[in-house]
């Protein structure tokens, strides 16, 4: 991981004098895995706050505003399916198919952008504002935080695309080093687990509320006066799915970093170079 290495043509071939290094040449994937642990803990913490708050309130969703279902539904489908599109792009890199990479990554970026546009449209058309109720607050902050991650992932994809405009740059790849399928697979399963547990939490009718945990009536009274969408409404579920689509940017981010690692580019420099 030294400067000479950085400036040689093959960035993956770590200088052989460092046995320890050549034994573990690809540390970025490991680093990314640890980073993901930390990222998911933020989401876990926020969801926990959401669930605990919900469990404290006797009536979580009094009759209130209904949120439309169509747009969020389409949005969710687009985002989820873009993962598969992205995977095609990853496969293309493995096959040294540069045009394929550009096509599939471009499509992914487009789908991501559509998702973000849809989210922005939705924000502008929801009947409640950030401070209308505690549900509304959680809704905006959690989806917003997720949207922020998607934006970041989108930027990474665009960066990869920008770099791949010159033929040959993206493809100086040692494919043997690269195991995205196993990595994404693990991640995918993990996210599925996360997602399903969220569904259970969200749709469980008998809440975890304990009478002793309940707030005193006056607060519940305040809450009952606010307009909150029904928990059981399909639109809410769809949003819940969207909330948990964290895996999207995870995929985007990791793949982009992996790709970046394979060429002489700023990411490589960013993560592993050594300067004085």
């Amino acid at each position: 991981m030294q400067s000479p290495t950085l400036n040689s043509t093959s960035t993956l071939n770590i200088s052989s004098e460092t046995a320890a290094h050549s034994e573990h040449p690809d540390l970025r994937m490991t680093g990314m895995a640890f980073f993901l642990v930390a990222e998911s803990m933020i989401f876990l913490g926020l969801f926990a706050a959401f669930l605990i708050t919900r469990s404290m309130v006797a009536v979580w969703q009094p009759e209130g505003s209904e949120v439309e279902i169509l747009l969020p539904g389409i949005n969710t489908i687009i985002l989820i399916s873009s993962s598969f599109v992205m995977n095609r792009g990853a496969t293309a890199i493995k096959k040294n198919d540069e045009a394929g990479l550009r096509f599939w990554f471009g499509l992914t970026a487009l789908m991501g952008a559509i998702f973000l546009g849809g989210q922005a449209y939705e924000y502008l058309h929801t009947p409640f504002g950030l401070t209308t109720s505690i549900f509304a607050s959680f809704f905006y902050v959690l989806t917003g935080f997720h949207g922020l991650h998607v934006t970041f992932g989108l930027m990474l994809i665009l960066m990869v695309l920008w770099r791949s405009r010159k033929p040959g740059t993206t493809l100086s790849i040692s494919t043997s080093e690269w195991k995205p399928p196993s990595f994404t697979g693990t991640l995918w399963m993990w996210c599925g687990l996360f997602c399903s547990s969220w569904f259970i939490c969200c749709n469980c009718k008998v809440g975890v509320a304990h009478p002793s945990n309940l707030r005193s009536p006056n607060i519940d009274y305040i809450l009952s006066k606010t307009e909150i969408p029904k928990r059981d409404s399909p639109s809410f579920r769809v949003r819940a799915v969207r909330l948990h689509n964290t895996r999207r940017e995870v995929l985007i981010g990791s793949s982009a970093l992996r790709t970046g690692h394979c060429s002489r580019n700023w990411l490589n420099f960013w993560l592993s170079s050594k300067r004085y």
Binding site: A58, V59, W60, Q61, P62, E63, K205, V206, G207, V208, A209, P211, L214, R215, S216, P217, D220, Y221, S224
Partner: peptide, 23 residues
């Protein structure tokens, strides 16, 4: 308990009782 208070108040105001199963 708060839930008892709510239950009584809820009936009088015709509030949805469904969410109170847990209470």
């Amino acid at each position: 308990t708060p839930s008892q208070v709510l239950a009584q108040g809820g009936e009088s105001t015709g509030m949805n009782m469904e969410g109170m199963v847990a209470m």
